[in-house]
């Protein structure tokens, strides 16, 4: 990987990465929280279950892992962003609910319970 040699290099890389990310927003994005606590409460199983369900329904979905989403009381948590929509975080997701989320929300856009409201402002750089 080439090294970055200036702030200009960095800004260009950032712009490219943002453009790539934007190009992907025509597909749903499933982001599973995988910090120690989320893993301990079954986050990895949730990730697997959602991937399997997506495959069996033949959907085209991007997956990513992230760290702590801060909602310990509702782990495992999953954030789903549908094209053109705000991200929605679902809590208390087990493998059954994971499948249901794919069938209902990812595929049909139909909300399920367990949505965690956004109680913060995220500082963006």
């Amino acid at each position: 990987m080439a090294k970055l040699n200036s702030i200009a290099d960095l800004k260009k890389l950032r712009a490219d990465l943002q453009a790539q990310a934007k190009a992907k927003t025509d597909k749903p994005l499933v982001n599973v929280s995988l910090a120690t606590c989320s893993v301990a409460s079954g986050g990895r199983d949730v990730m697997e279950a959602m991937k399997a369900e997506v495959a069996s329904l033949g959907l085209d979905v991007n997956f990513m892992q992230s760290g702590c989403m801060t909602y310990c009381y509702a782990e495992p948590t999953v954030e789903i962003t549908l094209p053109g929509k705000e991200p929605v975080v679902f809590g208390f997701v087990d493998t059954d609910k994971a499948k249901l989320l794919v069938q209902k929300y990812v595929k049909e856009g139909e909300l399920l319970d367990g949505v965690i409201p956004v109680g913060y402002e995220r500082v963006v750089l």
Binding site: N31, Q65, S66, G119, V123
Partner: peptide
Amino acid sequence: EKKQIRIATRNSGFIDPE
């Protein structure tokens, strides 16, 4: 009104840490 402002935790849960 949002009571929380995420500065130190601005990226946790939003980016892939790896």
